[in-house]
Design a binder for these strands. Structure first.
Length: 574
RNA sequence: GGGAGCGUAGCUCAAUUGGCAGAGCAAUGGACUCUUAAUCCAUAGGUUGAAGGUUCGAUUCCUUCCGCUCUCACCA
């Protein structure tokens, strides 16, 4: 697949030859130094309400630069769409205006970058257009963009809904027809019929043919998922929706920074190469430093470093950065992923639930425009007022033959968990579980997948919370919560353990577990114990998976749709 | 690592029971100075992911390999 075919070589050579011809005409096909003074978006915004007559009287002059995303040629004139980071603007090139420079336009291919100077006017069809007085090729592209570009349509949400329905009707009618000529006619007829239904809204009616064109273009855009992930630049340049997803991701991260900064948090960066494995239960990547001749572990969590900073006096800190876990890949797991971790002294996990609810509900509105966010078949309601349910209660709500007192009876818990254990290995694991482990398993089996709207689960068993503070009233549970949404864990937080003696014992338990063969355990971190001996104020800390949160806000079904360059198996030489 | 599915022109997709690999878009040549999926005429474009097997004949059936997707497991 990755080998270049003869056809590909030919298409590439044709474009290369056009570049050579530009050279012959004295134009560097990779020239520089032409600075556009305006953006397509600002020109659209400035003249959104100007009539053709007003523009003809004012003759406003502009210069823009961008990628040519479509060409409609008329021999001695042509319309091209020039797209920059703010959108696309139509440009009209005419031989009698451009003179010799028109020969440069004749060497244009879709995908090339150009610089254009001209005056704005409205074409006969009403589209804001730049009449080129100066035309300059900037970059010759040797490969054509895949598929077809679609025009952007700017409508109110209500109009967009109506147009969408009309476009769906047209598409449904025409998809069945295989003959292209008949299909075009059928399409025109059904567009006219849909427009007739929308006489009350001329703007929306006019957008229908654009919408049909856009639907058609999207159908032909690059869909091959492998190609999209391996060559994200092609995906980005040809799929507007993909660009929007990553813009939303950036908006999300910016919002979180602003939110925490405004609350007196200090953003810091801590090591990504650790001498010890700590902060989470996961298998690390191992690397090596040559001069010190020591093994290093890519961090699986920044937790213990951030808490050292709290000891040092930075009593509100956060870090947004990459963690690395040497595990399987799936629609919800990428080996490197972005995590927000933050720590606040004198706060409890209850305070962090308030903060989390405040931050994520506001982030949802900031990024998507609404607290009700569509995700696949569901609508997630991020509006504040999220339920806070103890883990045991969430299980009792769903397993009717289990009673509160059964949580003292490990045999009973194992029996219930055994119902959902299928493989012999699972059954063996269940049969040796303690109360805490069995409780956590029951939660996974019966509860987790049902939590669609944001829900806090609290009171985690101490057995699988090696860094969390014990609850004062019940030492079997910890002052910890996890936030679930769409059946997935989004955040994990607890009041931190700051008793160095207790921490030392829990590290030892982890080391014992490793000796018993458990691979996902933490190392004994003597320096961290020493830090705690210097005193860490009572602190609560939290981690939020940014990729997974981003998935929820962008309706992404795979984590790879919100990571610009996800990890793929490297292609062999072929 | 286990299971299921997919891979056909640059892009999106067809191909009847195993019977001449085919369209649209993109490209090339030509016409056209207000189009917006521009239009019209013509041309060209393929190692059907790779290797092997069955067969008179394989895009189609079988085996192995490569890659991707989904799913389970591991794990947040």
């Amino acid at each position: 697949m990755s080998d270049e075919s003869e056809v590909e070589k030919k298409l590439r050579e044709e474009r290369h030859q056009k570049g050579l011809k530009l050279n012959e005409l004295g134009i560097n096909p990779y020239g520089n130094g032409f600075k556009p003074e305006h953006l397509a978006g600002e020109i659209h915004a400035k003249h959104a309400n100007d009539t053709a007559e007003q523009l003809d009287a004012a003759k406003p002059g502009y210069s823009i630069a961008g990628r040519v995303v479509s060409v409609r040629d008329f021999g001695k004139a042509g319309f091209i769409m020039v797209q920059d980071r703010t959108g696309a603007l139509q440009v009209h090139v005419k031989k009698d205006v451009l003179g010799d420079a028109f020969a440069l336009y004749r060497l244009l291919d879709v995908g090339d970058f150009v610089f254009v100077k001209g005056t704005a006017f409205r074409s006969k069809t009403g589209e804001l257009t730049l009449a080129a007085t100066e035309y300059r090729p900037l970059t010759k592209t040797l490969r054509a963009p895949p598929g077809k570009f679609s025009a952007e349509i700017k409508l109110t949400p209500e109009q967009a809904e109506r147009v969408k329905a009309a476009v769906a009707a047209v598409t449904a009618a025409t998809d069945a027809e295989t003959d292209p000529v008949k299909r075009q006619k059928l399409s025109d007829d059904t567009v006219a019929a849909q427009q007739a239904l929308m006489k009350d809204d001329p703007v929306a009616a006019k957008a229908i043919p654009q919408g049909v064109a856009k639907a058609w273009a999207e159908k032909q855009a690059l869909h091959d998922t492998e190609e999209r992930y391996r060559r994200r630049y092609v995906d980005l340049l040809s799929n507007q929706a993909v660009r929007e997803t990553f813009i939303k991701r950036t908006k999300l991260v910016q919002f979180i920074r602003n939110f925490l900064d405004a609350r007196g948090y200090l953003e810091v960066e801590t090591p990504m190469m650790h001498p010890l494995v700590s902060g989470a239960a996961a298998r690390p990547f191992v690397t090596h430093h040559n001069v010190y001749d020591v093994p290093l572990f890519m961090r699986i969590a920044p937790e213990l470093y951030l808490k050292r900073l709290v000891v040092g006096g930075f009593d509100r800190v956060y870090e947004i950065n990459r963690n690395f876990r040497n595990e399987g890949v799936s629609t919800r797991h990428n080996p490197e992923f972005t995590m927000l971790e933050f720590y606040e002294a004198y706060a409890t996990y209850h305070d962090l639930m308030d903060l989390t609810e405040e931050m994520i509900s506001a982030a949802a509105v900031h990024v998507t425009g609404s607290a009700q966010v569509k995700y696949g078949e569901h609508v997630i309601n991020f509006a504040k007022g999220w339920p806070r349910i103890p883990m045991r209660q969430s299980i009792l709500d769903r397993v009717k033959d289990l009673k509160a007192e059964d949580f003292a009876n490990v045999e009973k818990l194992r029996a219930v968990a055994m119902r959902k254990a299928e493989s012999p290995a699972d059954k063996a694991a269940v049969s040796t579980m303690n109360v805490g482990e069995a409780t956590a398993l029951l939660f996974e089996q019966y509860v987790e997948h049902e939590l669609i709207n944001p829900t806090f689960i609290t009171e985690f068993p101490v057995e699988n919370s090696p860094l969390a503070r014990r609850n004062d009233a019940n030492p079997a549970i910890t002052d910890r919560f996890e936030l679930f949404c769409m059946g997935r864990e989004i955040a994990n937080a607890f009041s931190e353990l700051n008793d160095p003696i207790d921490q030392e014992q829990r590290f030892k338990a982890q080391v014992d577990a490793k000796r018993r063969g458990q691979q996902e355990t933490m190392d004994y971190d003597a320096d961290y114990i020493r830090a705690l001996e210097h005193g860490m104020p009572p602190t609560a800390g939290e981690g939020i998976g940014i990729d997974r949160l981003c998935m929820l806000l962008t309706d992404a079904q795979s984590i790879r749709d919100v990571i610009l360059f996800p990890l793929l198996r490297p292609q062999t030489s072929k």
